[in-house]
Design a protein around this nucleic acid. Structure first.
Length: 559
RNA sequence: GGCCCGUUGGUCAAGCGGUCAAGACGGCGGCCUCUCACGCCGCAAACGGGAGUUCGAUUCUCCCACGGGUCACCA
């Protein structure tokens, strides 16, 4: 077989050589040990947790080492591509703090190693393809989809391994004349790799995460170029990561099965293999068993889901960091205020197995992060979220900024900050009673209290309240009111001798809390009253009292 | 089915030949407290199974089981 003739037949318009191209992609001038890595997502319009996990790993490895992180869009599958997906992708990644040094941007590309969109690199792949053909390492295949499907069935029936290999590789030894004839007839073809592998052979390989691996050689003649001339992932990966001088390829371990093929490809091209980090895929609990998170079934896989729910970006980021490097948690405890970039990220600490996504843990991380924020910061982020997802609440926050911030400042700062909310979505429910417009009280009072006493508290309390009192004085007055009504002013004393009292000061406070907040849980009542001011406070007491009177019968029935 | 990866409490996980097998989340109980949220204290909870190697295996080897992934002109 005259491979040169075949190469000319297949790629008559390719004049450049690989050397010509490689001159355009000179080695990067980086210090020793600098990692060059990339994110290489396909633009399907769906950015998921896996993308972030992969992206964060690449980002840390690159930037921590003084290297380069770039974004390459793998748009080789035209069928699946969603219009505008690249923009969405860039926006979402930016939102999560992944900043690229070069690569695809919203208005084109930036960087010296582009283009960074694979469809625009078609000609480059063809130069390498032609070279492989000339060296007898690739050949055209004219099989139709139907023929391939029939082959698959046949293999299933014979219990043979699936794939285009050995005797199944119909066009592997096709004579040049036949190829010429078919091409002249306009038959579509794909370019296949001529594998020299044998499944009897094992190859040793060291993955940066999984460690020493023993893999079976690839004997399948995979497709390099599809019939539209666009490369498959495999071929684009080998060519691009060579030209762009990627040193570390970070990807999900669903790629592990194709690694032997990639190793072959790099060798066939005469290029150095990058280092690989195969990350275990994120799992989720599905009934009794674990499974890979799926785009179709699991909304929580989409990054936009976390935006909608109102998880702060930092929370998602830190949670993923704890999954990636479990010692991050310890580091965080030791360095509560340090920037996450100061944490020494290590590929060696990464778990070779896939981990289960744990919403509880995410919530915990998120609570801690929100608890550490200033009222100002909480306000800003909450507004940002509400503007998009809870317009009514947003109007209130934006309409009363100072008031809102005072509310958000309750129990904030100090050694033991309140940890009430994990996501912005919950903020409304936490502070709604501060706003008359969205106040929805549920008047449920302590069970041990008779109607008359509740009524007395609601009626009498204004006489005991002074807006100028400090917390001690404020509480002392509640104690006085308690005594007047026969309730023990000291909880401890009451517990020693419950028989002598109708109840204790806590019960009286609870009545006030229910009347003012419309529920049995609230932050510190002193702060609540102070922020509300006497007008609103007294109004709430009156309103509660009216409600109480209106429902006197229900109340007595319940007793 | 072939190939590959994985397997420490419910979950995330330390461990890298000798430990009473960390810690975190969650759960439960208690303390603190005007409720809640914190905080503090405590409890329950694990090395998938079987052979080896070894004085000694969670740790090394093999087999099995289970879980996962993958076998496209998708990435």
């Amino acid at each position: 077989m005259d491979y040169n003739a075949l190469a000319e037949l297949l790629f008559p318009n390719v004049k450049m050589t690989t050397e010509d191209i490689e001159k355009l992609y000179p080695p990067r001038e980086l210090k020793e040990g600098a990692v060059v890595s990339r994110m290489a997502p396909s633009p399907t319009g769906f950015v998921h947790l896996g993308n972030l996990v992969q992206g964060m790993t690449s980002e840390r490895l690159a930037h921590q080492s003084g290297g380069v992180l770039f974004l390459r869009v793998e748009d080789t599958d035209q069928k699946r591509e969603v219009p505008g997906a690249v923009e969405v992708l860039i926006d979402v990644l930016k939102h999560y703090g992944i900043v690229f040094d070069e690569g695809a941007t919203k208005d084109g590309d930036s960087g010296a190693y582009g283009p960074y969109r694979q469809r625009q690199r078609k000609d480059i792949y063809h130069v390498y393809a032609k070279k492989l053909v000339r060296e007898g390492k690739a050949y055209p295949c004219f099989c139709t989809e139907e023929e391939l499907a029939a082959m698959h069935e046949q293999q299933a029936a014979e219990k043979a391994n699936f794939g285009y290999y050995g005797k199944w590789a119909k066009f592997r030894e096709c004579p040049l004349e036949e190829i010429e004839r078919r091409i002249a007839a306009g038959e579509p073809w794909v370019l296949r790799f001529r594998s020299d592998g044998n499944i009897e052979n094992k190859i040793k390989f060291t993955d940066q995460i999984k460690g020493a691996l023993e893999l079976t050689e690839n004997d399948i003649d995979h497709v390099l170029l599809k019939s539209d001339g666009i490369p498959t992932y495999h071929f684009a990966h080998a060519v691009d990561d060579t030209l762009m001088h990627t040193t570390h390829v970070v990807r999900g371990d669903e790629w592990l099965p194709s690694l032997p093929f990639h190793i072959q490809l790099f060798r066939a091209l005469g290029k150095k293999l990058p280092k690989y980090l195969h990350i275990g895929t994120l799992q989720k609990m599905d009934g009794e068993s674990k499974r890979k998170l799926s785009k179709r079934k699991d909304p929580e896989l989409a990054l936009t889901y976390y935006q909608q729910e109102g998880y702060p970006v930092k929370a998602v980021y830190e949670y993923i960091l704890t999954i990636l490097n479990s010692n991050f948690e310890d580091w965080r405890r030791a360095n509560p205020d340090a920037d996450t970039d100061e944490f020494k990220f290590s590929a060696k600490k990464m778990n070779p197995a896939g981990s289960l996504f744990d919403v509880n843990k995410l919530r915990d991380v998120s609570k801690n992060i929100i608890a550490k924020m200033s009222a100002e910061e909480v306000y800003e982020l909450a507004c940002e979220w509400a503007k998009e997802y809870d317009r009514e609440f947003y109007e209130l926050l934006a309409g009363y900024p100072e008031y809102s911030k005072e509310i958000l400042a309750i129990g904030r700062g100090g050694k033991k900050p309140r940890k009430d909310i994990a996501i912005w979505k919950e903020l409304r429910g936490y502070m709604d009673f501060f706003f008359e417009d969205i106040f929805e009280p549920e008047y449920v009072y302590p069970e041990n209290m008779p109607y008359e006493d509740i009524e007395s508290v609601l009626r009498e309390y204004p006489k005991y309240y002074s807006p100028d009192a400090d917390q001690t004085a404020w509480f002392d007055m509640i104690k006085v009111l308690s005594s007047q009504l026969g309730y023990c002013p000291e909880t401890k004393e009451y517990k020693k001798d419950p028989g002598s009292w109708k109840g204790h000061v806590g019960d009286i406070s609870m009545v006030l809390r229910v009347a003012v907040c419309g529920r049995q849980q609230s932050p510190d009542m002193f702060a609540v009253m102070k922020i509300m001011g006497p007008d609103m406070l007294f109004y709430r007491l009156e309103r509660a009292n009216e409600y109480l009177k209106d429902h006197k019968k229900d109340f007595e029935k319940a007793l």
